[in-house]
Amino acid sequence: MNIFRLTGDLSHLAAIIILLLKIWKSRSCAGISGKSQILFAIVFTTRYLDLLSTFISLYNSCMKVIYIGCAYATVYMIYMKFRATYDGNHDSFRVEFLVVPVGGLAVLINHDFSFMEILWTFSIYLESVAILPQLFMISKTGEAETITTHYLFCLGLYRALYIFNWVWRFYFEGFFDLIAIVAGVVQTILYCDFFYLYVTKVLKGKKLSLPA
């Protein structure tokens, strides 16, 4: 555990909680892609199956349970509790175009051809693109609530901090996992455009809106 890893995890946790609080406080999930949230629930479920088989640390187990719990709570709020506010017409990204290729890639490129390992690899690849329906939705409507941009910023920051964590681990522990690193770099790149808009608009007090 290093400082980048810890702050990365906390940033991830902050993102998840910001999103839950936004929906809960406003009683609305307008502007939120339910499809991205379903993908994240699948990501956590397939990656954290090892909760049942391997104990790593109390920290590790607690965070996994919290991430999974929050992911399902978010999906529940979008598709059940506040379904009337869900903007399904704008959430039109075709997720099968992500899930099918990602599944194929996980079967082809993995560390070990075993059930658990392929599910883990699938979750790593899927996480790297799971935010696309959300970014697609924003590009379609041309705007995002400020609180939604804070959520996205925390999520992107978590990925960027994980890259620093991997650099650290490579130098000080000789540890690296190429699958996680490549997928993590791809994921971080997807946020670059958003980071730019966040810094130039949202941090200056403006709402995030895209030119028509």
């Binding site: 965070m63 996994k64 991430y67 560390h111 964590n165 690296f176 190429l178």
Partner: peptide, 10 residues
């Protein structure tokens, strides 16, 4: 063998 390491990252 990296993959045999415990997956301690979240």
């Amino acid at each position: 063998h990296q993959e045999s390491k415990e997956k301690d990252e979240l």
